Amino acid sequence: MAEADPEISLENSGPADRTAMTSEPARKRQWSRVALMLSVPLALLVAGAFYWLSLQGQVTTDNAYVQQDKVSVSALVGGEITEVLVGEGDSVKEGDLLFRIDAEPYRLQIQQANAAIASAQANVTALANSSDLSGTDISAAREDIAFAQANFDRQDALFQRGFLTKADHDAAQHRLNQAREALRQAQARQQAARAKLATGAAVPGENPQVAAGKAQRAVAELALRRTEVRAPSAGRVAQAERLQLGQQVVQGLPVLTLVEDGSSYVEANFKETDLADMQVGQPAEVHFDAYPGLVLKGHVESIGAGTGSEFSVIPAQNATGNWVKVTQRVPVRIAIDEKSPRPLIAGLSTEVTVFTDGKKH
Rank of each mutant, 00 (worst) to 15 (best):
A290T: 12
F355P: 00
Q251S: 14
Q56E: 14
P331E: 02
H361C: 04
E267Y: 04
Q282R: 00
P283N: 06
P341M: 09
I345S: 01
D277F: 11
R242D: 05
R333G: 03
G308Y: 11
K297S: 13
N269G: 01
L42R: 10
A150K: 10
L348P: 03
G246D: 09
D144K: 11
A20P: 01
V84C: 10
L348F: 05
I303T: 04
Q178W: 04
P105W: 02
D261H: 12
L133W: 09
A75D: 01
V313D: 14
A157P: 05
F147Y: 07
A35T: 12
R27E: 00
R217W: 03
A122F: 13
W52Q: 13
L243M: 08
F270K: 04
Q190N: 15
A167Q: 14
D168R: 09
A305M: 06
L38V: 08
Q248N: 13
L36F: 00
A122G: 07
V295C: 00
K70N: 09
A167W: 02
D132I: 02
P315W: 09
G213P: 02
V66S: 04
R18C: 06
E80F: 07
F355K: 02
A118H: 10
A26C: 03
A193W: 03
A201D: 15
T227H: 04
Q328R: 14
A218H: 09
A188E: 10
G78D: 07
L294E: 04
A20T: 07
A115S: 14
Q239N: 14
L97G: 03
L275Q: 06
E338I: 10
G281S: 09
T82F: 00
Q109I: 01
F99Y: 11
S72Q: 12
E285V: 06
R217N: 04
K28E: 15
N318W: 02
V324K: 06
T227S: 11
D261C: 00
A141M: 05
S39P: 03
L348H: 08
D132C: 06
G95D: 04
E24I: 13
D102K: 00
N322Y: 12
K93R: 09
R194Q: 15
H287P: 01
V86Y: 05
L45R: 06
A146M: 12
E181H: 07
P6K: 11
P343T: 09
K297W: 06
T350K: 01
E143N: 11
Q239E: 14
A47G: 09
L55I: 05
Y51G: 05
N12M: 11
D274S: 14
R242K: 15
S130E: 07
L76T: 13
V46A: 15
G14N: 13
G308C: 05
E228W: 06
T273W: 03
A43H: 00
S91L: 12
A16K: 04
L296V: 03
A120G: 07
R161T: 08
A182F: 02
S340R: 09
Q190S: 12
H174Y: 05
N207K: 07
Q247Y: 15
D170H: 03
G87L: 08
L164W: 05
R107C: 01
G235T: 05
E221C: 04
S264W: 01
G79H: 03
